[in-house]
Design a protein around this nucleic acid. Structure first.
Lengths: 106, 106
DNA sequence: ACAATATACCTCGCCTGTCAATGTATATTA
DNA sequence: TAATATACATTGACAGGCGAGGTATATTGT
């Protein structure tokens, strides 16, 4: 089972920000964490993930830097900014409100 | 306050079907009911509503017929079909699952 | 030795749902 | 008689998700 695109739409950014609040991280790791947290039920499509990184960086919610691994594939790490925390907080609050409204409507 | 488009996206059809399970209804009434149920916090945009009717009819989830009002503006009534009930049930189940996953992720 | 798999990144272009803008028509109310 | 409410509908722009495709390195199995 997978989540319908239209149900996940709009949560992608918030999910990423939630992960980055815990610690700096990179795309591959974020995606694997998501899979673990959902018992392998859900994974973000790579295209969706990297599109979101561009969008979030553009919006000033995250910054990025290359990791200094001397083995394995290179990693681009992301950090959440103050702006990103603010956005996260707003999105989360909006989710709580929306959740209740939808429950009332369906 | 209004619900972000991206959070409501994917629920439009389910919300309409939920209303039509109660009784046959028409666009304007459905929209007013939604507003009432949410304490005037949320309303569907007309374009979204009517697009959804086309989509649902196309998918065999609803059928329509003109009302026989002899006063006021004409109304196009919609009925939910067996297929529509099935879709509603699936969508609702998917919502319950998704809700939990999102809560776990954000 | 070499193929397969895992790790890790990225972009292009299509598809779909939302919605602003715009239009039509009738009935009621100020 | 102007404004508002009821009631329908379409068009085109926009944005996010994602399939398909691509690059590169390290490890594991045969």
């Amino acid at each position: 089972m997978s989540i319908a695109s239209d149900l996940i739409r709009g949560h992608t950014d918030t999910i990423i920000l939630a992960h980055l609040i815990e610690k700096d991280s990179y795309g591959y790791e974020i995606n694997r964490t998501i899979q673990e947290k959902t018992g392998n039920v859900f994974e973000m499509k790579e295209a969706t993930l990297y599109t979101a990184f561009r969008r979030l960086e553009q919006a000033g919610c995250i910054t990025s830097y290359w990791g200094d691994e001397n083995t394995g594939a290179r990693r681009r790490y992301y950090s959440i900014t103050a702006e990103g925390r603010k956005t996260y907080k707003n999105n989360k609050a909006e989710w709580e409100t929306t959740k209740e409204l939808i429950d009332r409507l369906i």
